[in-house]
Design a protein around this nucleic acid. Structure first.
Lengths: 225, 225
DNA sequence: ATATTGAGTTCACAATTTCTTAATATATCG
DNA sequence: CGATATATTAAGAAATTGTGAACTCAATAT
């Protein structure tokens, strides 16, 4: 079976490991475990997990050290690392952020929170999700062929137009703020004028000839059929 | 409203406030500001932010004092508080964390670090409870789609109307003071006349066609079904 | 080397919607 | 009943989006 993702759990307390393993396995993740710092590094290299959960307090290199060592390697530059922190150990939060951890989970571990947090992280990881063909009524959007069809008739869209349409249509009904759109399509640091989005929206509406993008004044745009 | 989260910034240096406001607004956060300690406490109570950024050095109660006062109140037990510290003031880091702050950011503020830190904090908060569809009887309010439904029939609300309805419906039965409403929907630095709220309330009642907002004379409004 | 093309952006202004105000009517409470 | 608060209405202000045209910049064709 195709696992949702591979997760490495490193903690020296077997109980904790088991709680986490049980809950995440149940959710369809593939689990690898380690019980000390050196082991964690070893296993990480071998199994190349998508996500690593590191206990801060571990024998033979603590979590922060492991994180630093892994982060120094190109292979783990983009791996998501999450710390397990005891509640008492407040200051390590700060330290962790600087070291390059992406999130924290506090002990004692609540299975419900754990699972939702992990889900959220994987959602975030998959920012370039499966390029899937979207079909809604008589509209078809194929990100692989980079083409849109209305009533099986191809419509030629420019790159930005296509990206914009695909973004909106990927979550029909959901309102995308102008800011969100800018971040997703143009990127965080690109600055374009206020009217640029409108112009692209217009082009899409024009070219498709169907009314599938609704303006939510003062908020953004949403896809609706 | 469709904001990712609400942040209160308290600092007596307008420049700093503006830098932070600009960068976080761009990221889709809703910003409320204060320029001294007392003001910060006031604004915190009124607007109930998810995160509070406190400058340590402020007139009329410094950041640590503000933090202590807020932390003593149940409403702010779980609010994330972050200190702004001058680099010189090393010792206050420790003090701050002891007081119950969750993190600190050093001045001068680097926008990039600021943003990533705030993002990380919000990921940690896991603020799922917000941004949730509200369903009460035959009324449905979906903040993601920015749409309200009565008997499964969509009702088009303007931005302010929607925000207002969502606010009231988020805590059915609870009375919202006019002041609270102003701070939550308009923000603390916007001044609008007394009758403005009434007009929006009226529009909501009119558009929904159902009687779900009750006037509490001399106090405010509440949602009731 | 020069023209052509088209995507992407910007601009000025028009069109539209939303928000606020002001004025008046109505309701409520002691 | 009288004082105060809210409801209602219409109209003008303010804000936001739509639009046509022009401009920049590459890539491509001539």
């Amino acid at each position: 079976m195709n696992a949702k993702g591979k997760i490495l759990i490193a903690d020296d307390e077997p109980d904790i490991v088991e709680i986490i393993r049980y809950n995440l396995t149940k959710e369809g993740y593939e689990i690898v475990t380690a019980n000390n710092g050196d082991d964690a590094i070893q296993k990480a290299k071998l199994s190349q997990p998508d996500l690593i959960i590191l206990d801060i307090m571990m024998p033979r290199k603590n979590g922060v050290e492991v994180c630093e060592i892994l982060r120094a390697q190109p292979a783990f530059k983009d791996t998501v690392i999450v710390f397990l922190t005891a509640l008492s150990d407040e200051s390590s939060h700060v330290k962790g952020l600087e070291t390059g951890a992406d999130d924290y989970i506090s002990k004692p571990v609540s299975p419900k929170i754990l699972v939702s947090r992990i889900h959220a992280i994987f959602r975030r990881i998959n920012k370039e999700p499966e390029e899937k063909v979207i079909k809604i009524d008589n509209l078809e959007i194929d990100p692989v062929k980079f083409e849109a069809k209305v009533d099986s008739k191809a419509v030629v869209l420019a790159k930005k137009e296509f990206e914009l349409l695909y973004l909106l249509a990927s979550k029909p009904g959901r309102v995308f703020l102008r800011n969100e759109i800018l971040n997703q399509i143009w990127g965080n640091d690109v600055i374009v004028g206020d009217r640029t989005i409108d112009v692209h929206i217009r082009k899409i509406r024009q070219k498709l000839g169907i009314d599938c993008i609704t303006t939510v004044k003062g908020v953004g745009y949403k896809f609706t059929m």
